[in-house]
Amino acid sequence: MITFARRRWLNGFITLLAGAGLLAWYTAYDVALYQPAFLTGWLLLAVILVLTLYNGRKKLSMVPVGTAAAWLQWHIYSGFLAILIFALHIEWSLPNGVLERLLALFFVAVAGSGLVGIYLSRRYARMLTRRTEEVVLERIPQFIADLRTQAETLVLESAVETGSSTIADFYGNRLANYFAAPRNLRLHLQGSRRASFALMTDLNIMTRYLNDQEMVYAEKLRALVERKDRLDYAHALQTTLKAWLFVHLPATYGLLLLALLHLILVYSFGGAG
């Protein structure tokens, strides 16, 4: 079984080799006064179509056409090659037509979101493992609702049993909104714990006004806040792990449509053929 490091080196080396060959071929073609833009264009379209097939492979999990992991490796390294082909195709400069610029923008969106996707997949998976319990994203709202119910029950009970409204007031002012839905998405993505730290600080300050009986309720409330924080964290990271695909996939389809239009225009008015 090949290690990840070895696989990275091997795939990277093959990609570099292919890239170098491509550059050499492009230079020779250019020197010979051919128009390499037509060939790089067709090559780029072919690579993009192959890259798009990966999504189809994911849907056809029941058909034995190689593992999704092997396809993803192809997808990633072919993607790197596609960036090089794209740069050669636009001759390392910004296209001048409106459609061409739009097309370039879509390509950048697809390639950029893909690179972001690789980074998130590697980084957030580890972060999730280190800080949270395993929870399915779609179930998080239900878990939060359960926590909210527990918190509200606890607060009401504390008010009845202790005859004091300190905890209930704190809940109403500071925690009701917090327990209402997933919170602090941006801060969790940044790896910041500022929001939960501030909440805990306020909770600690509030405890100055509690007696021993109320302290028991406050500690239970603190535990619920901590669990909510972990759920928010999982929600933020898991949502982002899925959300980047909502850029990558639509941009890919947009890119394909624009590329088709570009192709028609080139062959109609660009002197090709």
Partner: peptide, 10 residues
């Protein structure tokens, strides 16, 4: 391997 699992549920 949860370090590699992106929780995509594929």
């Amino acid at each position: 391997d949860l370090d590699r699992c992106v929780r995509c549920d594929d």
